[in-house]
Amino acid sequence: MTFLQTYVEAFGAYILGGLSGLGRFTQFTGKVFFWGAKPPFRVRLLIEQLFFIGNKSLFIVGLTSLFSGMVFALQMYLGVSAINMDSIVGPIVAISLAKELAPVFAGLVVAGRCGSAMAAQIGSMKVTEQLDALEVMGINPHQYLAVPRVLGATLSMPMLCAVFMLVGNFGSWLTGVHILGIDEVMYFQKLSDFMRLGHVAEGLIKAGCFGFLIGLIGSYHGFEVSGGAEGVGRGTNLAVVWGMVTVLVSDYFISSFLTKIL
């Protein structure tokens, strides 16, 4: 009985902890919206975040997208060449990139690179009383730190996603046409036959949603840090894990919604 009771209690505490965390996250989201709508609007901080999340992620996003496009083209070719359909490699890769691969992969890269940095920056500011210093000066830390990060990630992600699509398709073309020998005219002909603007729009909207979630999660875990350097490490870890999991989980729900309206 005691053994069972211990496990039931531990399970209950786990559920309650999760619900309490969800409540705090909801409150945090509310604060970001509330303070985001209030002046002053610190454009300089937003530009700094756009530079950090967007510009500084370009290389890693470019590299990831090039090889993703190349390997996807290779795998598709191996599959469809058996039924003499190798010319549809281009549109398959392009549509996959636009609808799924570009927003999700760019999201994972940004969650890993920027979500962790957001949690670490805000978390280390918290443990060294810099957030208290902002409060005492009469500056809301959510407005000063979280709002530019969330907005920066939301605006940067569609741009990174567009770069991902472009470079990924370049990789696909490179592998398909120049390495595997698919006819270039057919490649582009099929591409224009099957590709729609809606596919690209779906990817870009999704990327914006992922950016918003990554910015929120990264900032939230920074604000939740407690207990010194170890706490900062834990917060950073949680920001990456939850950022990536949220991208993958929310992908299904956002896709279900977007396919109905686009």
Binding site: E129, Q130, D132, A133, E135, M137, G138, N140
Partner: peptide, 19 residues
């Protein structure tokens, strides 16, 4: 309260400078 806090200056234990 945020407006009001501008009447106060605070020196923190470890200075809390923006790093």
């Amino acid at each position: 309260l945020r407006e009001f806090r501008r009447n106060f200056g605070m020196v923190f234990q470890y200075a809390a400078l923006f790093d």
